Structure formats: C-alpha cells, structure tokens
Computed example of a mutant assay.
Amino acid sequence: MEIRHYKPSDEKDWVRCRALSFLETAYFDNVLREKEHYENPSIELVAVSEGKIVGILDAECDTTENRVCTGKKEKGAMIWHIAVHPDFQRKTIGEKLLKELEKIAAQKQVMYLEAWTRDDQWVRAWYEKNHFKLVSSYLHIFMEGNELPKIEGNKSEMQLVQGWAHYTGENKEAVKEKFKRVHECVCYTKVL
C-alpha cells in the first residue's frame, strides 16, 4: 500500500471510496457526486492498494488564524474527509493517512488539526485513540412530516417536506426526544 498525494485522475475512485466508507456511518446520506475543491491551501492524500484507492484524507489549511478552523487562535488545518474503504478497514490505513497529514502539516507550520464528526462511537474512539481531544458539540436535527414547522401562507404554493437544523442550546436531551433523527456533531482537535 502506498500513501500519496491526490491527483485529478483519482476523482472517480475517490468518490467511490468516500461513498462506500460513509455508508455504515451517521453520514450515510451525505453523498458527493464529485470531489470537493478548496478555497485555501489543502493537503489531499489517498491510500492506494493494487491500483485502487482504499483510503482518503482531505485537510484544508488556514492561511490566517481561524479562516477555516473554528477553535484556536493559531494556524490550523480542518480535516474535511478521512475515510477507508470498508473492505480495508481495521488495517491501520486511517492512522497511516493521519501520520502523513501530520508530517506535511508540520512542514507547513500548521499548529493543530480540527475534525468534526457525528455520533458514531467507533469513529469517536478512533479520534481519541489518535490523541484528538473533544472540544465542543451541537445537535444536527433532521426533520420530516409532522416534525416540521408550519409555513404561513398559501399551502398550495409551498409545502415543506424535509428540513434540518443545528441546535446549540443546553437542553439537548429534550431535543433528542422530540425528533426521530438527531446526531450529536462533535469537534475534535489535536495539537501538533
């Protein structure tokens, strides 16, 4: 297996790897049809085995303090995607991608990494095992049908059928009881 920089010709396999990797997570419906491109400098890595992309990692770097990252008053890098193809999980590919990111980030004078994830305990455990610290969280609420707020006006012209919201208040348990699909989105950081 080789860890290398992403190339534009990798896009189709990158999208497939991400889709399959996210399928069994709380991000199962966050489907991309093409790879994201970043406004700021980025570190985009792939893990390749037998000519196939089996792991991905994208991180966007701050050019000034808090341009991309949300937490600290120093230059950071936001991990937007880290994923390993399901057939290759539990083989330390994620750790190898992370180590390569850390090496390149240090050369770019990045002081810390930031990553947001949802409430998959195995994903949280992976971040914690790799020395990330949980620093904050909010709720991501998906609403359908009778869970949706009512819209004023002519109902024949517009009908809300799905929606989502962020909840940053203190009464998280009450919100979790009110809606069927609620994810806790958590922020992890790692000082380099």
Rank of each mutant, 00 (worst) to 15 (best):
V110S: 03
P149K: 01
K35C: 15
E177N: 13
N40M: 12
Q107P: 01
S49N: 04
F28Y: 15
G55Y: 02
N154P: 02
K133Y: 08
K52I: 00
E102A: 13
S21W: 07
I56S: 01
V186W: 02
E152T: 13
H81E: 04
Q162A: 10
A83F: 05
K172G: 03
E157Y: 14
K180F: 11
T25M: 12
V54P: 00
P86N: 01
H183N: 12
A77L: 06
F132R: 04
Q109D: 11
G163L: 08
Q109F: 07
T117Y: 07
I3Q: 05
T189P: 02
K108G: 02
E114H: 06
T64L: 14
G169T: 08
P41I: 08
W14Q: 01
K178D: 00
R18N: 14
L101D: 01
F88K: 12
C187F: 04
G76M: 07
W122E: 11
E177Y: 07
L148S: 05
I53E: 00
N66W: 02
E114V: 12
E100C: 10
Q159S: 09
Y27A: 15
R118S: 12
I104D: 04
K99Q: 13
R124N: 12
S156L: 13
A115R: 01
C61K: 04
P86H: 01
Q159W: 09
V48C: 08
M111H: 10
K103G: 06
Y27W: 15
K35N: 13
F22A: 05
N146W: 01
D62E: 06
G145V: 07
N171F: 09
L113P: 04
S156G: 11
S49P: 00
A26W: 02
C185V: 15
Q107H: 06
C61D: 04
W80I: 00
D119W: 10
V46P: 00
N154E: 10
Y138M: 05
C185G: 05
T92Q: 08
K35T: 14
N130W: 03
D29C: 13
E34C: 09
L45N: 00
I56C: 04
L57Q: 00
C61E: 06
Y6R: 09
M1K: 06
H140I: 03
E157W: 14
V46I: 15
D119V: 14
Y138R: 05
E36I: 13
